[in-house]
């Protein structure tokens, strides 16, 4: 899933200055799971903004709140049609994709990002998420025992550990495991160390020419079959 952190309140307060009526919009999917922008966080942020406004005494924003099932999918945005007429901006607590989906769907509406979208990862323990995939477009987890060197090694190197690893940790961050120590240990356990002995050439960054578009194979096949038959 996608993991994000809510922006600091002060930054959010600065962003909304030009707008009177602010709709705080949550997302019911990833942002709910990572505690950054689900229904609960929307309501917390709503209260925090009201309190801050009351304290400052010289602002006149009006806030409303709503949480969509998902912000990154156009079909889930339809319910907003009759809500956005009454607001001057949407403060989205969706990930960067959600914010952009809103901007595309509502060309005349200013949208503001309320979270910093950080990575694709998984819950490690309660309230802790770790990055696991950088969407490199050329997955090599088969060669690395299911541990991603591109995301989990600071340098994203492919041919084994650098010399900086110490106590199994990464030279860049003593709290983080060295990806290549993990890969070595797991390959050893799987009796597949020959995979580490192999040479891996430089990555192909064309695997994902940004921005990338993926077309569903299923719908394409259906079309192809149709054309052949036609």
């Amino acid at each position: 899933m996608i993991v994000a952190e809510q922006k600091p309140l002060e930054e959010i307060r600065r962003m909304i200055i030009p707008y009177e009526r602010v709709l705080i919009l949550g997302c019911g999917t990833c942002m709910t799971v990572c505690d950054a922008g689900g229904e609960r966080e929307v309501s917390f942020l709503h209260s925090a903004l009201r309190v801050a406004q009351a304290k400052s005494g010289n602002e006149t924003h009006t806030f409303s709140e709503y949480t969509l099932k998902r912000q990154c999918d156009p079909e889930f945005l339809d319910v907003l049609d009759d809500k956005i007429d009454d607001v001057d901006t949407v403060l989205s607590l969706g990930c960067g994709i959600g914010v952009q989906a809103l901007a595309e769907r509502f060309p005349a509406l200013p949208v503001l990002p309320g979270v910093n979208t950080s990575f694709m990862g998984m819950a490690k323990e309660l309230g802790v998420w770790d990055e696991r995939c950088a969407a490199c477009g050329d997955c090599r987890l088969e060669e690395t025992a299911g541990i991603c060197p591109i995301t989990r090694c600071t340098k994203g190197i492919l041919n084994g550990p650098c010399a900086g690893t110490k106590n199994g940790k990464c030279e860049a961050n003593k709290d983080m495991d060295c990806a290549w120590v993990l890969i070595y240990k797991r390959l050893e356990r799987l009796e597949q160390l020959e995979k580490m002995r192999r040479y891996y050439p430089m990555r192909n960054f064309r695997a994902i020419p940004r921005p990338k578009r993926i077309t569903s194979k299923i719908s394409v096949d259906v079309v192809d079959v149709g054309e052949d038959n036609g």
Binding site: N159, C162, A172
Partner: peptide
């Protein structure tokens, strides 16, 4: 070395290649 140990910690790390490559 990793960018993180240096004096321009906010720079973009390149690492398009590694030492073997």
């Amino acid at each position: 070395d990793s960018i993180d140990v240096g004096d321009h910690k906010e720079a973009k790390p390149v690492f398009d290649a590694d030492s073997v490559q």
